[in-house]
């Protein structure tokens, strides 16, 4: 069987540094469970399971970015937009743990490194940018799509530099760090574009079908939205204002049963 390793393998970063990042990842996930519980209600729990399953599926879809080099979705930005940063990081971690334990992808020793980069750093970077962009951009439908794309590109590059940092601390081979950083960043800008396209498409689809299920829209867009603003902001779409205006009065999501 050909090599389908997609994450950091065993033995690339030394034992002590790997162990330190395992502890860091465990601490971060504990915080995510504590903070994520506030978001996790009867509706978000199954949705978060779906987000994890979807990320698992799309991570199998390696796309070519350069001759002999491919890339795949990391998923942090997608998860953060759909289920929020805390639960989002847990979704990506779930995928990484299952891939490691059952599919032999991403070393067991390196699990903390992979969780730190892709689930913690990737999701955090993606969400921070999503939060900033959604506040800056006009309340138009394209704003969420554009935000998803831009945040994905940045998030993937930042996550790739997380690996460079880990390698700087505990790399097992003497190599030029700047070469590694450049090479990782170059490849991951291209992978980020692919991630951005997938994330933007997925988020736009969910926002069109069930805008009330998009965490970023609920938390970062809903409070200030009035029915009038919603109507003027989306003249071309009939279903979106109807669905979003249902949430307009309430900062907390309430529409699932009512709609």
């Amino acid at each position: 069987m050909d090599a389908v390793a997609m994450h950091i393998a065993n033995g690339i970063v030394n034992g002590p540094v790997s162990a330190a990042f395992a502890a860091l990842a465990a601490a971060a996930l504990t915080v995510c469970v504590a903070r994520g519980r506030a978001d996790l209600d009867d509706r978000l729990a199954p949705l978060a399971g779906l987000v994890a399953a979807f990320i698992f599926a799309v991570q199998m879809l390696n796309f070519q970015v350069l001759p002999g080099v491919s890339g795949h979705l990391l998923g942090g930005t997608l998860a953060a937009i759909l289920v929020g940063p805390w639960v989002g990081a847990l979704c990506v971690s779930t995928v990484l743990i299952i891939q490691c334990l059952l599919f032999a992808d991403g070393g067991l020793t390196a699990l903390g490194l992979n969780i730190t980069n892709m689930a913690v750093v990737g999701t955090a970077a993606g969400y921070l940018l999503v939060a900033a962009l959604l506040r800056l951009l006009p309340r138009k439908r394209y704003a969420l799509t554009l935000t998803a794309f831009v945040a994905s590109v940045v998030s993937v590059v930042v996550a790739s530099q997380g690996f460079v940092f880990e390698y700087w601390l505990g790399g097992t081979t003497e190599l030029s760090l700047s070469t590694i950083a450049g090479s990782m960043a170059g490849a991951h800008v291209l992978i980020g574009v692919g991630e951005g396209l997938i994330t933007a498409t997925t988020v736009a689809t969910v926002a069109a079908v069930r805008p009330d299920l998009v965490y970023a829209l609920r938390r970062l867009r809903a409070p200030a939205r009035t029915a009038a603003a919603a109507a003027s902001a989306q003249p071309a779409t009939s279903e979106l204002p109807a669905a979003t205006s249902a949430t307009a009065g309430a900062p907390e999501p309430t529409v699932d049963g009512a709609a």
Binding site: D2, A3, V4, A5, M6, H7, I8, M60, L61, N62, F63, Q64, V65, L66, G68, V69, S70, G71, H72, S160, F163, M184, A187, H188, L190, I191
Partner: peptide, 10 residues
Amino acid sequence: ASSSPDGLDA
């Protein structure tokens, strides 16, 4: 899917 090594592996 592409069977080339991913950005990290490459």
